[in-house]
Design a protein around this nucleic acid. Structure first.
Lengths: 76, 76
DNA sequence: GTTCTTGCTACATACTAAAGTTAGCATTTT
DNA sequence: AAAATGCTAACTTTAGTATGTAGCAAGAAC
């Protein structure tokens, strides 16, 4: 992957995770995704699906709406 | 699939498409996705990826942010 | 009023690209 | 040194593409 979109999305996830001050592993637990997969997402290497976006949003305790509001600001 | 999330997402896409008064095939052309895939998404049968969400949003001429605002209202 | 189109959608199947999951080790950071 | 992250590689599952069939509605047409 590594498209502008996946890179921008990863940046937002990393920013939100750091804002909560938790590790990739901890976010992995909270969102039921593997820690290495979290890393791939943050690096923009994967094209995440809707279900996984929802898992991440729950793990980060934010709404998907918020994620896309942030994405809207930095993307394009 | 056919999770609550994919069903809710599909409902919003169908609603937006009908609002533009275009067919699944026409939306397929505009978003560079296959016509049958548009149908599957609207029926909640597939777990769409971020890239395809962006394609759909461009084809529908709305922002991803708007899609998730609408999703937020009906989902959960 | 029953036959032709015509357009749209549902649905089945099959293929191939890539998402999702995991393990292991290297590298960076604190 | 320990904790966190990067990175690779292998594997399973599924998204996404493609083609084809069937059904339904509306409308025109003879």
């Amino acid at each position: 992957m590594n498209t502008k979109l996946s890179l921008d999305f990863g940046k937002i996830i990393r920013e939100l995770r750091k804002g909560k001050d938790i590790s990739q592993e901890e976010l992995g637990f909270r969102s039921n995704l593997h820690r290495t997969y979290i890393g791939m997402i943050e690096r923009g290497e994967k094209n995440i699906t809707l279900e996984s976006i929802e898992k991440l949003s729950k793990g980060l305790d934010v709404s998907m709406k918020l994620i896309f509001e942030k994405l809207n600001k930095i993307h394009q």
